[in-house]
Each structure stands twice: as C-alpha cells, then as structure tokens.
Design a protein around this nucleic acid. Structure first.
Lengths: 135, 135
DNA sequence: CTGGACCTTGACATTAGTGTCAAGGTTGTA
DNA sequence: TACAACCTTGACACTAATGTCAAGGTCCAG
C-alpha cells in the first residue's frame, strides 16, 4: 500500500510516516516510480509506534523496539540473542509501568484519605475530635 | 529552602524548577530578598513531577494533577469536587497504564512464541511435550 | 570591605516531533 | 491531452523542555 492509504488507516500523518522511516522505525520498498510501498503489516506496526509515542517513548527509544513492533512473528529471527533482546524490552516496559503504578497508588491513597475524612465529617460523633466545620 | 538546595535534593536543575513554576506546577513564596522559598513538601512534589515527566506526561498534562502532587494531604480541600477530580486523575492514569500493559502483553506473547519455537528446534522429535525447561 | 557562593531575570540555543509549503514527477480518467 | 489526485524531496516554522550565558543583586566569611 502507499503512504496515503497507510496514513488514512492509522491516522498518522504522511509527514510522520516519512519521519519515522528516516529514523529507522519503519521501512519501505520503493516502487519503480519512486513511491513508498508498505506491507499490510505496517498498519499494526504504525499502531504500535503510536501507542509507544502516546505513553511517552521517544522515537529514539522506540527504535530499540524495532524487533517487537510487528505483531506478526513470521519474519523474526530465532536465536538466544533475540530472546535476550525481547526480555530486555520487557524489562524496560516493566520499569515504566512500575513507576506509573506507584504514582497511581499514591493518588489512590489520597482519594481514600479524602473519602475517609468526608465520611468522618458527616458522622462527627464517634470519638473523633476533629470537630465540626458545621456542615 | 532555596532553589539550590531543592535542586540538589531532587536532581532537577534550577532552570527546570523555574520553568515548572512558571507553568504552574510548583509555587514559591518569595523571601524579602527576592529569593524563592520552598516548603519541605516541595521535595516530594518535585519527585512526583519528575516521575510523571519520565513516564511521558507533558508539563501541561501534569498541571492538571496539581492537586495530587503533594503526598501530604494536610492542605487539601475536602469536597465532593475534590473527590471527583482525583477520580478523574486516576482514570487518566489507568488509561495510560492500560495502553502500556497491552503493549507489554503483545511483547510477552512474542517472547513466548519465540521460546516455543526455539524449544521445538532443539527437540524436533518428541510428541510436542513442551514442558521441562529442566530447571 | 571584598571575594565567592548563591540568587535574580532575560536572552539565545538546541532537540524532538510535527505542520506546512513549494516545485516537481506519476497516473488514471474524462 | 489535460486535469485531479496522488506521490517525491527539501525547506522553513513551531512547540516543549531544557541548557547556558550575561549582567546584576544578596550575603557570609575572612
């Protein structure tokens, strides 16, 4: 497929597709007329790139994931090295997810605390001397 | 504390601290001599900002989290509105975490597949007994 | 009082990712 | 054949986040 169709099907601008190609995220086969040709799998690949960008990876970082961007495994090399690379990618992702989850936990705690205090305000008796804002 | 100490304790450059202040992420009380004064709680606040930046939030997005950046709740308003805001923040975080986890799942699948195929290559006989990594 | 360490603001520089425009080639269709 | 819709490269422009530098104020230790 050509760049226009890929752009239409993924929502990525043609400009971005060319930029990503230039930075090694995407690769194309030039047709006799010079147009870029994309395989069907490029659609999912682009979607994966978009996801990674949306959660804050840079193009440079995404480039390291080049081997994991096609969900279709048919073109993958089978080697212990490939395994180690994938493990490393997982590790990176986990690292990031972990940081986000920690953040989430902290905010959840704030919410719990807030709810607890609101409840306490509605039931001001019960031995708590945090007295009445006169609700 | 002054900007130099905050910078030293968090690793954020003074430049960034000023930039974040300018964009509403951080607020300071000016001392008589014009220096910025930060409360102790600014340390955790800055760390939270750094975390959010590192997982891909923009300063603009972080600004929406302004009420969740201090882990210390003592200054928090107690209102149903505050609760709704916090819930909304959690929702945003979950959205993001979800996208990352999906990505992780896909890559994990690739890894599993790769391992399966490597195992198959090493044991081409055997009626597909996939177990025994002989751990 | 002076030097050094710290602070201020303002300006310019850089990088990443993207938009947009210009000048031109290709192709299908009327 | 000619137009419209697509493609090409290259250039310039913008934003976000940060570095860095300059010119100057504050303050403490000697």
């Amino acid at each position: 497929m050509r760049i226009g169709e890929l752009s239409a099907r993924t929502g990525a601008s043609a400009r971005s597709l060319r930029y990503w190609e230039q930075h090694g995220l995407l690769h194309t086969v030039r047709q006799p007329n010079g147009y870029r040709g994309y395989p069907e799998s490029a659609v999912q690949r682009v979607r994966n790139i978009q996801t990674m960008l949306s959660v804050g990876f840079s193009v440079e970082e995404i480039r390291a994931f080049t081997d994991c961007l096609d969900d279709d495994m048919r073109s993958k090399p089978i080697s212990p090295l490939a395994v180690r690379l994938l493990e490393e990618r997982l590790r990176q992702l986990d690292e990031r997810i972990c940081r986000m989850v920690n953040l989430r936990v902290r905010i959840q705690r704030q919410l719990d605390e807030l709810r607890r205090r609101m409840a306490a305000e509605h039931q001001p008796f019960a031995g708590d001397e945090k007295h009445e804002e006169t609700v």
